[in-house]
């Protein structure tokens, strides 16, 4: 496999696409910007000082896709037939998911356009929200799939897991996750309803390690170690030693008060 943007002498050059066949091409890219729950709430209710954040970020992403060739040196200028930028507010992960879809009938792929749209939409979200939150992190910007052209269809291999992982850890091929729910008073206190934790992030596959992994990720999860907090795995009461495997549903909750 060679890098098409380098010529025989190893110099950067623009690939001649004149003799490539025109095909319908599409690329989808995604990314996310993680913010504080309060910032997300303000964004959701339109309470941020710069106004309608999502509408602005959407236009920014679309404009950026159209100007990708001005930003990325060896990209061709393309006549895109469609650019969309969509947002999904995720309270559980306290982030905004951004997805862009670019399409054209042409001789070159549109993945750079989709990636640029996501990047600039995320940057615009940062700009619109930075007055109230400077800790925001943009991450996970990546191509999800592309279709058309000589290389045919390409899809990202494994499902995404929203949990953050240390950069020092090797990327795991197996991103199977455990779904963790927080109920009632605990959900309100932690300000989170649900989170996914990759099995690979656990030292050993049990509840005690799950608590440790969550606490390592965010200190507020130390609340799970309080003696009064109960735990269920797949709807059955569990304890620290209960073993876990991919696809399990774990719930943490306070003592019950029904009847």
């Amino acid at each position: 496999m060679s890098l098409t943007h380098l010529n025989a002498r190893g110099e950067a050059h623009m690939v001649d696409v004149g003799d490539k066949a025109e095909t319908q091409r599409e690329a989808v890219a995604s990314g996310r910007i993680i913010m504080r729950p309060e910032t997300l709430a303000l964004l959701a209710e339109g309470g941020l000082p710069k106004g309608d954040v999502l509408a602005t970020a959407r236009i920014a992403g679309i404009q950026a896709a159209k100007r990708t060739h001005e930003l990325i040196p060896l990209c061709h200028a393309l006549l895109l037939s469609k650019v969309s930028v969509d947002f999904r507010l995720d309270e559980a992960a306290s982030c905004v998911h951004v997805e862009s879809r670019c399409r054209l009938a042409g001789r070159t792929g549109v993945e750079m356009e989709a990636l640029t749209a996501v990047s600039v939409a995320c940057l615009t979200l940062y700009d619109m929200c930075k007055a109230v939150d400077k800790d925001m992190t943009i991450e996970g910007v990546r191509l999800e799939h592309k279709t058309g052209g000589k290389s045919g269809e390409w899809h990202r291999a494994s499902a995404d897991v929203s949990t953050t992982r240390d950069a020092s850890e090797p990327p795991s091929v197996d991103s199977a996750a455990i779904r963790v729910k927080f109920l009632a008073e605990l959900r309100e206190r932690l300000d989170i309803e649900e989170i996914e934790v990759p099995v690979a992030a656990l030292k050993s596959p049990d509840v005690a390690s799950l608590k440790a992994a969550l606490e390592a990720q965010d200190s507020r999860f130390s609340a799970l170690s309080a003696a009064r907090i109960l735990c269920a795995v797949n709807h059955a009461m569990a304890n620290e030693e209960t073993s876990l495997s991919e696809g399990d549903e774990v719930a943490f909750f306070p003592p019950v008060t029904g009847g």
Binding site: L183, F253, P254, V256, T257, G258
Partner: peptide, 14 residues
């Protein structure tokens, strides 16, 4: 049944 329901069934009151 009521004693066990109150202490074992997952319900929460606010």
């Amino acid at each position: 049944l009521m004693d066990y329901l109150k202490t074992r069934a997952p319900f929460w009151k606010k």
